[in-house]
Simulated scan of single mutants.
Amino acid sequence: MLINTARGLASRGHQVDYLSPADGAFLGGLPADIRHRPLPARPRQHRAALVDYIRENRPDSVIVGKDQDAVTAIRARDAAGTGVRVVVRPGTTVSRRLAGRNAIKRWRTYRALRRTYRQADGIVANSEGVRDDIAAITGIASDAIHLVRNPVITPDFHEAAAAEPVHPWFAPDEPPVLLGAGGLRRQKDFATLIAALARVREEREARLVILGGGHLEKELWSQARALGVAENVTMPGFVENPYPWMAQADLFVLSSLWEGSPNVLTEALALGTPVVATDCPSGPREILQGGQFGPLVPPGEPEAMATGILTALRAPLPAAVLQSATADYTMERNAEGYEAMLRDVHERAANR
């Protein structure tokens, strides 16, 4: 999402550099007016490289999206001594991600997060849930954390979705296709989605496509075989352009145990595809506005998910209604929010 934020700010006349390793993800999406500045391949070399970059280029602000990158950027800011401001952008519900760790590891992580976020010049969250979570962990007041929705819908978004059918299952007169997307890891909980498919198929025909790769693929296939639905499941792996799949699916299902602001859910809505989502922390309840734009079901409960899927398949909401839920998730709206946030960060710094 930071690439889309960079694109939005650049389109509004700001000079934007994008720093990442040379093999960073999605660099092909950078337009010519954004300079890519490669960082060393080894993370421990990033601080020195960032200090050199700050001293040479004198940026007004550095925006970072990962906690460890935030630590690096804050240390580089202090070493460079140019007055650059560091803004941290947490993207997930940290407390839920850490819930499985033992108490000592969780305490150490929270202590490090409190130190890092209190040293940042600004914090911007992508959902109310993430904002409240960071506030609870760090003790920073919620109203001191800016809220800017993710820049999911870009000017070329709908063009990318307008491709030919991507799989025979999307042909006319085929059974309805459910779509899930994300890494095949515990957080996304595709096991519950596969179990829900088996329950749905007790009442009607349906198929499931899961886009993404990960270490749980074999385990998920074993589950599908055990439930007798393997012939009705396909997992094509990572797909660079998932939007034609979303546009052609009968239903998008978010099965996550936790999120921050799930972009795939917003993308499906923007394409007019009906959705079902877990009511996980955080994001789905905000995006679906309490279930107004699609059923919300408890995480980890296949029976409830199946009921939500059957409900959505029987009475899908019109595409125009679904698309109306995504007005705040455009690249332009995101750029406006970041401009306002950066003005506030620099005004606060000037008044200290």
Rank of each mutant, 00 (worst) to 15 (best):
Y117D: 07
R77N: 02
V233R: 13
P242H: 09
L251A: 09
D33P: 07
V177Q: 02
E205Q: 13
W258C: 09
V51K: 00
T5Q: 15
V166F: 15
D17A: 14
R348M: 06
G139S: 07
R207N: 14
A277R: 10
R75L: 14
Q15T: 15
L19N: 11
M305F: 01
H167L: 07
V51M: 06
A304K: 14
A306M: 04
Q248F: 01
V71L: 11
L179W: 04
A10V: 05
Q68V: 13
N263E: 04
V209D: 08
E240C: 00
P172I: 06
P155R: 04
H46C: 06
D33R: 14
V62F: 02
V276I: 03
T307K: 12
G272C: 06
A306F: 02
N126T: 10
Q119R: 15
P38V: 06
R12D: 04
A181L: 15
L251C: 10
A112I: 05
T330R: 01
P274H: 00
T192F: 06
A315P: 00
T234I: 14
E128K: 06
P175V: 09
A340L: 09
V321P: 00
A99W: 02
T273F: 05
N126G: 09
V177L: 04
Q119T: 05
T109Y: 10
A73V: 08
R185K: 09
